[in-house]
C-alpha cells in the first residue's frame, strides 16, 4: 500500500504513477487573507496522508476545497487525473466545470466531518442508504445490505433503527464514516474527526479508521491533532503553515527529526500540551 515513500522531496514533479489527488498551484483567499498559497500536493493511490499544523494554517480548507465545499481562486485540483473545478472544453482548454461535470468527479471523494453532520430526522439506516439510492441508483434492498455490512464493520449493526440523537458522539461519527463509505469513494477526507469527542470515545473512531486503512486501498487525507495516531497510521505527514506545506516527510522523519524551526516549535508546543 505504501507504494510511494519518497515524499520528502517537493512533490511538484510528476511522480511515476499518476497521483490520485493533485493540487497544482492552488490558491484560496478570504478577502485579504490567503488561506492556501500556491499549494502543490500530490497523493498517490492508497496513500495515507496526515495533515497537521496550527489552526488557521489552511489544513481544513485543503479538505474543503477538495470536497468542493469552497471554491478556489487559482490553480487546478485533480482527482484521479480529472480536473475537479474545471473541465476541458471542445478545444481541450480548461473552463470552469458545470455542476453536472463536477458532480461526476466529486463522487470519487467522500468526507467525514468534525461535527458528524448526520441527518437528524433519519434513522442510522436511512442516513447510510439515502445517497446510494438517490445518487448511485441502488435498489433499496441493495442499499440496505450495503448499509448493514458497513455498519457491522464499524460495530453498529444493532443501531440500525436508532436516530442520531440516541447515539453517543463516537457512535455518530462511526455512522458518518459508514455513510461516506457507502458511496464507495476512492478518496476519503477526515476533517478533525475526533476533535468533538470525549477522549474515551476517540479510540473507537480511530480503530475504525485503522481497520479501514488495512482493508481497503483507499486514499486518505486526514487533518488531525492526534499526533500519536498520525505517527502510527500515516504514510506521510504534512506540516501546514500559512497556507503552504512547510515541511513534509514520513512520520519518523517529521516527528523524529523535523528540519525547520517552525515545525520544531509546533511539535514541541504540542508535546508540552500533552
Amino acid at each position: 500500500m505504501t507504494t510511494l515513500s519518497t515524499h520528502t522531496a517537493t512533490p511538484a514533479d510528476t511522480p511515476q504513477d499518476a497521483p490520485m489527488v493533485a493540487f497544482r498551484g492552488v490558491t484560496k483567499r478570504y478577502g485579504e487573507l490567503t488561506v492556501l498559497d500556491h499549494l502543490d500536493l500530490q497523493v498517490a493511490e492508497g496513500e495515507k496522508v496526515a495533515i497537521i499544523g496550527p489552526s488557521g494554517s489552511g489544513k481544513s480548507t485543503l479538505l474543503r476545497v477538495l470536497m468542493t465545499l469552497e471554491t478556489i481562486d487559482d490553480g487546478v485540483i485533480e482527482v484521479d487525473g480529472q480536473p475537479l473545478t474545471h473541465m476541458p472544453d471542445a478545444n481541450g482548454s480548461l473552463v470552469p466545470a458545470s455542476a453536472r461535470y463536477q458532480r461526476g468527479v466529486r463522487g470519487m471523494v467522500g468526507m467525514v466531518f468534525q461535527s458528524f453532520n448526520l441527518f437528524p430526522h433519519m434513522t442510522v439506516r436511512q442516513n447510510v442508504t439515502e445517497a446510494p439510492i438517490r445518487v448511485l441508483g441502488l435498489r433499496k434492498a441493495e442499499a440496505r445490505q450495503r448499509a448493514e455490512e458497513l455498519l457491522a464493520m464499524v460495530g453498529l449493526e444493532d443501531k440500525l433503527e436508532h436516530y442520531p440523537a440516541q447515539l453517543s458522539g463516537g457512535q455518530q461519527q462511526r455512522v458518518a464514516i459508514a455513510r461516506a463509505l457507502a458511496m464507495r469513494p476512492k478518496v476519503m477526507l477526515f476533517d478533525e474527526v475526533t476533535s468533538a469527542l470525549d477522549p474515551e470515545l476517540c479510540g473507537e473512531v480511530l480503530n475504525v479508521i485503522r481497520r479501514l486503512g488495512d482493508a481497503h486501498n483507499l486514499t486518505m487525507l486526514m487533518v488531525t491533532h492526534q499526533m500519536g495516531f498520525a505517527r502510527e497510521f500515516a504514510d506521510r505527514v504534512c506540516f501546514f503553515n500559512e497556507g503552504q506545506i512547510h515541511e513534509q516527510g514520513t512520520p519518523d522523519e517529521l516527528f523524529g527529526n523535523p528540519q525547520r524551526e517552525r515545525t520544531q516549535a509546533f511539535l514541541s508546543a504540542v508535546n508540552e500540551a500533552h
Binding site: 465545499l69 466529486r106 466531518f113 453532520n117 441527518f119 430526522h121 439515502e130 438517490r134 445518487v135
Partner: peptide, 24 residues
C-alpha cells in the same frame, strides 16, 4: 453543516431539498 453533508454525499438539489433540507 447539513448542506455540506449533502454536497459531500453528492445529492442532487431535488433530493437534497425533499429528503434532507425541507423535513428539517
Amino acid at each position: 453543516a447539513q448542506w455540506e453533508a449533502v454536497t459531500a454525499l453528492n445529492l442532487a438539489p431535488l433530493a437534497a431539498y425533499r429528503d434532507v433540507i425541507l423535513p428539517q
